[in-house]
């Protein structure tokens, strides 16, 4: 074991504090009995959690976000897996270009993407629809899925597939019984990361939602621009708890290391 030096320990402590601090503040604020944002809270009250129930538009928005995250993560996974298989192992002209194209949403400024999507959706007459949202989110989050799937595809020993072929397996059987199970860590990891990214997306989404398809981040954002009551803190706390629960669940059944590192063994 290599133990950390004093300075790196200090650095790590500060870094962790910086990461966790805002979450602690948000959670603290959400328990305030007062009508304004205060930290530390002067008392302990569930008043603002109860208030969520009086604001069905937050709950509706959360449902939209949840459905949107699941749908767009699934769509992008279905697109990214074959793409990763092709990019990761085949040699064809335009391979680099294809990869760059798939990863480009990461490099284009999100504001620009938002405006572009707005135009695109009006051309397609999908403006403000749920389908339109899924389409746009899928495009934004595909790079995340692609990268994780790609890393597990590249890390896979191809002679394993050859062995299956030599034993008589058809291409589809090889994919279903061998390739897919072996790149599953990448697929699951990519899907979860894509889901979280979609659930969290604000900049692009602001351009393309309408009142009936408002997502939770957009709803929170517009709430903040109007008032500054602790309702946003309690909603945020619920989202934080939801995310933590999701992570614990994944860790229990899958292992977070495996998810985030894309490890295959």
């Amino acid at each position: 074991m290599i133990s950390n030096g004093r300075y790196s320990l200090l650095f790590n402590a500060l870094f962790t504090l910086f990461m966790v601090g805002p979450l602690v503040v948000v959670i603290g604020v959400s328990f305030t009995p007062t009508g304004y944002l205060e930290f530390p809270p002067s008392g302990l009250s569930l008043r603002w959690f109860a208030a969520i129930l009086d604001n069905p538009d937050f709950i509706d928005a959360a449902w939209v976000s949840l459905k949107l995250g699941i749908a767009s993560a699934t769509v992008s996974t279905i697109v990214a897996v074959p793409a990763a298989l092709a990019i990761g192992r085949e040699k064809f002209s335009g391979r680099e270009a294809l990869q760059a194209l798939f990863l480009s949403p990461l490099t284009v400024p999100t504001v620009v993407l938002g405006i572009a999507f707005l135009r695109l959706l009006s051309v397609l007459e999908l403006n403000g629809t749920f389908v339109g949202l899924v389409l746009c989110h899928a495009i934004i989050i595909t790079p995340f899925v692609l990268r994780l799937v790609l890393s597990s595809v590249v890390g896979m020993d191809r002679s394993i597939e050859k062995a299956a072929i030599s034993l008589g397996a058809s291409n589809w059987t090889v994919f279903r019984r061998i390739t897919m199970p072996l790149i599953m860590p990448g697929i699951v990891g990519g899907w979860v990361l894509a889901f979280i990214t979609s659930f969290d997306e604000l900049t692009v989404t602001v351009f393309i939602v309408n009142p009936s398809t408002t997502t939770l981040p957009v709803r929170l954002f517009s709430h903040i621009t109007q008032t500054t009551d602790p309702l946003i803190a309690s909603v945020s706390t619920v989202v934080i708890l939801f995310t933590v629960a999701l992570m614990l669940l994944i860790n229990r059944f899958y292992g977070l290391d495996r998810l985030l590192m894309g490890e295959t063994k």
Partner: peptide
């Protein structure tokens, strides 16, 4: 390849890890 019915042992063994 899949219809040749040959037995192949690879350098990396290529066992199905799962």
């Amino acid at each position: 390849a899949r219809k040749r019915g040959l037995g192949i042992v690879f350098q990396t063994y290529a066992l199905f890890p799962h």
